[in-house]
């Protein structure tokens, strides 16, 4: 029991640290791509610490509760995603659960931001939810195909099916699915060209417009954890997971850097264009692939 709680805390904090590191690296990489020097890779840590020490304002209890819900929901999600050999809870049937658990965090964040009473935040949430309906569909189709072909809905089970060697990775088995999942990962992370919800130049960073001080720190932490969760999920599902934590982190970093690099060179989609984009090519391809695999 005590061990469990200790593992719980350790995992949560190390995921935060890892996520913040990833964010820092990404900022540096994007700056280099854009021929800037950029902040140091540990800048994200400094930001979070600084924000926690600052004074902040709140807009009522729903604002506080939403922040807690967003962060708590993301932490809970983390426990169901195996990060390398570390998996706190290896329950069967977690893949579907993870998808839904992420929604808790979104709901919390949405409530907090709309609870602030700023219409820009509402616009951002409206965009985010709309875009979600876009990218989730092809993603889900790929996941369903994966579950059907590996005959398990547990992430650990899926990792185990691709253990013995590179050739067993789902990247090789279902390449189209991997590509689609990667495209949806862009939307899932809110990276360009799918960053309409937080478009700073249009709606002043949308959902986070009212967040300052510890609230912004919470959002950043939540974002950091979500980066870890999403990249880890992708690595688990398509890149064979990993028994060695370092290899796993390297795989995660590769995925993350790819996402970042792609995001740094594309302009932004309008929100309905983004939705239609997802429904046009990735969804059709995913369905075709599903049909091929199931029949």
């Amino acid at each position: 029991m005590i061990l469990n709680i200790f593992g719980f805390l350790l995992m949560a904090f190390s995921a935060m640290a890892l996520g913040l590191l990833f964010i820092g690296i990404a900022r540096k990489v994007v700056a280099r791509v854009q021929k800037r020097i950029g902040p140091p890779f540990y800048q994200a840590y400094l930001d979070v610490f600084k924000l926690f020490t600052k004074n902040s304002i709140t807009h009522g209890f729903i604002f506080d509760f939403g922040a807690i819900m967003a962060f708590g929901g993301m932490i809970t999600t983390l426990f169901f995603v195996p990060v390398g050999p570390f998996v706190l809870y290896g329950m069967n049937g977690t893949l579907l659960l993870v998808i839904y658990l992420m929604a808790v965090a979104y709901l919390g964040m949405a409530m907090a931001t709309v609870g602030s009473g700023n219409p820009l935040a509402s616009v951002g949430i409206s965009r985010a939810l709309t875009q979600m309906l876009g990218y989730e569909l092809p993603f889900i189709v790929v996941l369903l195909t994966l579950i059907y072909s590996s005959n398990t809905s547990s992430i650990i089970g899926i990792v185990q099916t691709q253990q013995s060697g590179f050739m067993n990775w789902n990247l090789i088995n279902i390449p189209i699915g991997t590509a689609i999942a990667f495209v949806t990962l862009l939307g899932l992370m809110g990276k360009k060209p799918f960053d309409a919800p937080i478009a700073p130049s249009e709606i002043a960073s949308g959902p986070v417009v009212e967040h300052g001080g510890k609230y912004l720190a919470f959002i950043m932490l939540q974002h950091a954890v979500s980066v870890v969760v999403k990249t880890a999920l992708f690595v688990d599902l398509f890149l064979g997971g990993g028994n060695n934590i370092f290899i796993f982190i390297v795989k995660m970093l590769i995925v993350w850097l790819l996402v970042t690099l792609i995001g740094s060179i594309f302009p932004r989609f309008k929100v309905e264009e983004g939705v239609l984009f997802y429904w046009r090519w990735p969804l059709i391809a995913a369905l075709l692939q599903a049909v091929i695999i199931i029949f």
């Binding site: 719980f8 902040s56 807690i68 708590g72 932490i75 009473g117 001080g213």
Partner: peptide
């Protein structure tokens, strides 16, 4: 696990500096 996650978030939230309540019209 849900309770755990929320508890952790709550503890971090509480331990941070207390924030000041403002009205809904007081926004960006």
């Amino acid at each position: 696990l849900f309770v755990g996650g929320f508890l952790l978030a709550f503890i971090i939230f509480i331990s941070a500096k207390k924030s000041k309540q403002v009205g809904l019209m007081d926004t960006y």
